[in-house]
Design a binder for these strands. Sequence first.
DNA 1: ATCTCGCTAGTCAAACTTGACTAGCGCCGC
DNA 2: GCGGCGCTAGTCAAGTTTGACTAGCGAGAT
Lengths: 204, 204
Amino acid sequence: MSTMRLLVLGAVRQRGRAHGYQVRADLELWGAHEWSTAKPGSIYHALKQLARQGLLLAHETAPSTAGGPPRTEYELTGAGEREYLSLLREALRAHDQKTDVLTAGVGLIVDLPRQEAIALLTERVAALDGWREEVERYWSPHSGDLTEFGHIGEVMRLWTHTAESQAAWTRGLIERLEKGAYVFAGEGERQITLAPEPGEGPHR
Amino acid sequence: MSTMRLLVLGAVRQRGRAHGYQVRADLELWGAHEWSTAKPGSIYHALKQLARQGLLLAHETAPSTAGGPPRTEYELTGAGEREYLSLLREALRAHDQKTDVLTAGVGLIVDLPRQEAIALLTERVAALDGWREEVERYWSPHSGDLTEFGHIGEVMRLWTHTAESQAAWTRGLIERLEKGAYVFAGEGERQITLAPEPGEGPHR
DNA sequence: ATCTCGCTAGTCAAACTTGACTAGCGCCGC
DNA sequence: GCGGCGCTAGTCAAGTTTGACTAGCGAGAT
């Protein structure tokens, strides 16, 4: 659920305080229901789970202003903030991620300081290059003749092609960031407030 | 579970008749535990599920020759064969697939006739091109100026880049197949036998 | 007035995945 | 001649995802 965690934490964090339907609507706005598992069930589940683990603080609220069941509002705790940043860094750094994690990471990248984002993406490029080399080594230990693997060699071709392509895209993004594109954390325009730390024990 | 279904059906089909551990070992050999969710729990679950749905026929077998619990052997039914080919076609044709589905499709591609594989991959190229155009249209309806979306424009760049890259790889594969690479279904060397059709009712 | 449509806000069962666990047996070293 | 290691073949609980469903209310149509 790591993509869900990242997305939900990121969505709640942007609002400061949000209820489930708001998160759901925001994610839909980002198109997340198309490129990730961000469907209602998953979102509400993630919210409850994160609250149980002390990463979100839940406030029961009066029945909504406009029909429907009573809603619960959430805000990030300090632990939630740390977890969010940790997930975000991992999403940008690691190469072995599914597309949805990377997409979420790119969408939330400006929550990091610019220099850190660049450093993480640089790590990503190195990881992709390393992985590609490993795949190539694994697949040509004998004669270097790809045909000996038959059509399975095509799987290797697919992977190395993908790795190269992703590395190229990442290098392009790094270049744009180095030229000063976009507004990152600490560059004005943004401010995040956190909920007070939770006390001991499980939350409900 | 569509990737699991494809992989498990493909693995059982290659053996003609196989028990869970064999499927598990084959998938591990293909490296599937690294690029898909092919872990023991999922595999055994998929086998039972497919048997319940009449796509696999289950035979209880005497306790194994070498320790361990008694094992169950499975073979494809006619419905299983149809489902397998249908999943395989879809894996190769659709662009909106996760990497694991595509990888599985490539690994099993030779179970289709060559001309059909080429046709499916051609559809894939068209689907990727169409999707890329759609993304580009969606993201530049106003001024055509990407900067107005801020860093979110990077998500679009990522996707169009990915689509182009996948299309290029697919075109390369088509070219190789047209030149006669690899041995496909109906080109000798392979023979698949099926289990007799199951009777009515749910199977166990 | 009333009917229905769509939005709000969420629940629920069923399916699927994960990671840890079990239990029998042969083999290898000592 | 036996203690542990590793292989065989699988189970299980806990967590996650899916897709369908619920129920309240306002706004416009009849």
